[in-house]
Write a protein that binds this DNA or RNA. Structure first.
Length: 217
DNA sequence: ACATTAATTGTGT
DNA sequence: ACACAATTAATGT
């Protein structure tokens, strides 16, 4: 089967940590290939997590959301990576309080939670991968915390724009000021004013619903 | 092509 | 943060 072979190749390439062929075959046998278009919502706050994603292509952004509405961008998941929160939830059989959205057109292998214990028991390279995922995502969350505490908002905004541009592989970001404000947990007016500053400084070009970063990716 | 409406962005307090 | 103005895009006729 072509899709299955493509997935096999992608897994080998992107997850070199999975040494054993048998592990890869297990993942392919029980996992489900999922494709998302840009901005498609993969997971709502109230959802139970039924699978752990292994990213093959594109990117997911993961938010933590509180009781009513306020949300924080936690981290991104790129090809070759997985999601610490879904692993954590699967492990504890708890609800996620998390929202996941496709940052670009995205493809991943969804590994059902029932399989996780099994993988842990039999495959040391899986255990290593899980540990690595936790450590990686922990670092990313720390960076968010650092940013929130130490950095000024204009720097955070620039970093945000750079990250988005990089993830989707082009400097043109189609996104309203409101959306950005939500991602950075601030108000739309503030973002509008900062963006105007950035435009005056020649760092971005602005158009309605669209921001272009004037620097190399 | 024109008018109407909705969405986004700008600005003063 | 809120209120409102101004601008631009989308939609219907």
């Amino acid at each position: 089967m072509t899709t299955s072979n493509q997935a096999r190749m992608a897994l080998r390439e992107l997850f070199p940590a999975f040494r054993q062929t048998e592990l890869i075959e297990q993942l392919l046998a029980h996992g489900q290939l999922v494709t998302l278009v840009q901005d498609e919502v993969l997971l709502h706050v109230t959802d139970y997590i039924r699978a752990v994603p292994l990213l093959l292509q594109g990117a997911l952004r993961v938010y933590r959301e509180d009781e009513l509405g306020r949300e924080v961008l936690l981290y991104h998941i790129r090809p070759g990576e997985s999601c610490a929160m879904s692993l954590s939830c699967a492990l504890q059989d708890r609800r996620s309080r998390i929202r996941a959205v496709a940052e670009a057109d995205t493809r991943f292998l969804a590994v059902p939670v029932e399989l996780l214990m099994e993988l842990n028991r039999h495959y040391p390279s899986w255990q290593t991968f899980v540990a690595l995922t936790f450590s990686q995502k922990f670092e990313e969350v720390l960076r968010v915390v650092e940013g929130a505490v130490f950095q000024h908002l204009d720097e955070r905004l620039l970093n945000y724009l750079r990250e988005v541009a990089q993830l989707q592989g082009q400097p043109v970001i189609i996104r309203s000021h409101q959306r950005i404000a939500d991602d950075l947990a601030t108000s739309r007016e503030v973002i509008s004013r900062l963006l105007k500053q950035l435009a005056q400084d020649g760092r971005v070009d602005l158009a309605r619903g669209q921001i272009t970063l004037r620097e190399a990716l």
